[in-house]
């Protein structure tokens, strides 16, 4: 990889191609006790891009995305959605964003339809429009068959889907998704991919985190690699991976552990 790739989506202050960035993170920093979870990260997600954030477990992806959307207060730094500060103008930023966090609860004792309806009402969506959207989302996510099941009894994949549905309900311009494909079956994953690709084709921007490299290679046009709380590479997919696959680039940058490759002594033939 050359030097230019590492910086391409990084610190440039001007907006990308003259347009306001969909998401601009400036110097975001978070410390938990003595551990630095996110270390002064700058990142720009251009409008209309499908942005993949990859990194090993514990790299700080979830912490970074939580701070980016206003679910975790940063120790330092700023996050702007289409120019609206997440911490200074939260109402505007929140109206533009759809979020799917990883592993958080939802109002658990509602059915999928009830959850979407209440969220829609809280978002101030007109009742007539809302009913149609809810039905369409339930159909697309194939959650209609579990009509009477409460969210607390949903499988992991169903939880992802209902979470994504709540993120899409109000027609956001930016989607921030933390591990959206984890534990989702291949059929549902295909449906989700179609939805996300359609969203980007319609001018929306998506940021998703994942540690499944082939998936990110298949979906995203822009990527950033995180390790130990820092962004070690960012830019268009082709530039970041160069001639190798994303996985090879990733392992080279993140540095796999020697022990992990050796295997277990008593299992070797």
């Amino acid at each position: 990889m050359n030097e230019a790739t590492i910086q391409s989506a990084g610190l440039d202050d001007g907006d990308v191609e003259g347009r306001t960035a969909a998401l601009r993170l400036t110097g975001l920093h978070k410390q938990f006790g003595t551990k630095t979870a996110v270390d002064h990260v700058d990142l720009v997600v251009p409008q209309g891009s499908f942005f993949g954030l990859v990194g090993p477990n514990g790299a700080g992806k979830t912490t970074l995305l939580s701070m980016a959307v206003g679910l975790l207060r940063p120790d330092a730094g700023d996050s702007r959605v289409f120019g609206a500060g997440v911490w200074t103008d939260p109402a505007e930023a929140k109206a533009l964003t759809g979020v799917l966090p990883d592993g958080l609860s939802m109002p658990e004792r509602l059915t999928g339809r009830e959850l979407l309806t209440f969220i829609g009402e809280l978002r101030g969506i007109n009742a007539g429009v809302l009913a149609g959207r809810v039905q369409e989302l339930l159909d697309v996510m194939e959650l209609g068959s579990a009509e009477r099941t409460l969210v607390v009894d949903y499988s992991t994949g169903m939880r992802k889907k209902i979470g994504l549905a709540t993120a899409l309900l109000h027609g956001p311009r930016l989607l921030v998704l933390d591990e959206p494909f984890e534990a989702v079956d291949p059929v549902s994953a295909a449906a989700l991919k179609a939805i996300l690709n359609g969203f980007v084709a319609g001018g929306g921007s998506v940021v998703l985190s994942s540690h499944v490299m082939p998936l990110v290679e298949q979906l995203c046009d822009t990527v950033a690699i995180m390790a130990r709380g820092q962004v070690v590479a960012a830019g268009p997919l082709g530039q970041v991976r160069g001639d190798a696959t994303l996985e090879q680039t990733f392992v080279r940058l993140v540095g796999g552990d020697e022990h992990a490759r050796k295997g277990l002594s008593w299992l070797a033939s």
């Binding site: 109002p107 004792r109 509602l110 059915t111 339809r113 009830e114 309806t117 209440f118 009402e121 809280l122 101030g124 009742a127 009913a131 809810v134 009509e147 009477r148 099941t149 409460l150 009894d153």
Partner: peptide
Amino acid sequence: TIRGSENHLPAHGGPLSGPTTAIVRK
């Protein structure tokens, strides 16, 4: 397993509209 309501939208609109009543019903 505790089951949710039947296949219809929770009542809304009219006097039940508004964010606070949505939370009350939730």
